[in-house]
Design a protein around this nucleic acid. Sequence first.
DNA 1: CTGCAAATATTGCATACTGCAAAGGAAAAG
DNA 2: CTTTTCCTTTGCAGTATGCAATATTTGCAG
Lengths: 168, 168
Amino acid sequence: MHDSQQPQDLDAANEMVAAVVTASRVLVAVSARSLAAIEEALTVPQFRMLVVLDTGGPVNLSGLAEQLAVNPSTALRMVDRLSAAGMVERTQDPGDRRLVVLAATAAGRQVVRQVTERRQAEITRIVSAMAVDHRGAMIEALEAFARAAGEEQINPAAYTGQALPGWS
Amino acid sequence: MHDSQQPQDLDAANEMVAAVVTASRVLVAVSARSLAAIEEALTVPQFRMLVVLDTGGPVNLSGLAEQLAVNPSTALRMVDRLSAAGMVERTQDPGDRRLVVLAATAAGRQVVRQVTERRQAEITRIVSAMAVDHRGAMIEALEAFARAAGEEQINPAAYTGQALPGWS
DNA sequence: CTGCAAATATTGCATACTGCAAAGGAAAAG
DNA sequence: CTTTTCCTTTGCAGTATGCAATATTTGCAG
């Protein structure tokens, strides 16, 4: 009895889902390309860490792990590698000898800037290929979409575009 | 001399980039949630493999690795684990004894269906919270965006939403 | 038919991300 | 001063990833 009820609504919903999913593919591909294009051969988690350190300023290990929504041990080992690569600087907090102060080096900030610029350029290039009257509508629509989703919680760890396997 | 040239165009471009990036965050979070919500505790790469096997039908290992854009050895070990979990079935090709025929089991297809339905439901729920007159505009805008991007190549491996570190 | 080249799957080795649990040191609370 | 709490670090295990080498099988040339 409930079959074929309000078929036009269902069709519209399916069309929306399809459009959103397709756009999602494009966006993920753009992010991946922007990161792969640079010389330094960073992984996605490493780039996420650099973004957090670059935008958020110096933090200790626990705070960094929390912002990335990973285990402190994971963050520690990532810091080890990025530190060896010259992207992250570790110093001791003079006031509290338990704390390790972490910050992005100039090289690390440079990488974040390069990837961000490349990603923005690529998105701009795609948008430039769209019909002009579609652009304003897209901004409004995307902002409305993000607002609608934002009233539920959004995981901050997804900030730089990584999918999280063990997320609840 | 080129500073501050066409400031309104630059502002519009920045606004578009910001809207796109924010929407991207939301979409990635939705994908991650949909996968984390099921019982079976699959990783993102494992789910990608199941999607390929479910939609594409039986393939051999090389073909599967190519569709996922990973090394055959990587695909092999993932098949090992998914096979142990009862999600993937391996059989020998009777015509060519080199080939291994891989297919999703009923349990594997069930998982793909569950995650897909959950993701679609979540997107539908978000869209339902949008103003009605924004929805049609969003469909058109997103399709136009995907079209504009589609004239360049899109990596098929990004299908299920994974960011690829080593992609060129 | 035989031998060689190509295709296919598999294994070995290395690196990275991830979490849980335990250990060790330092600061705060009592 | 003792206990508790906080923070970092290490040990252990599982998964993903790629490169290189190996084994097996097929196809082709001679």
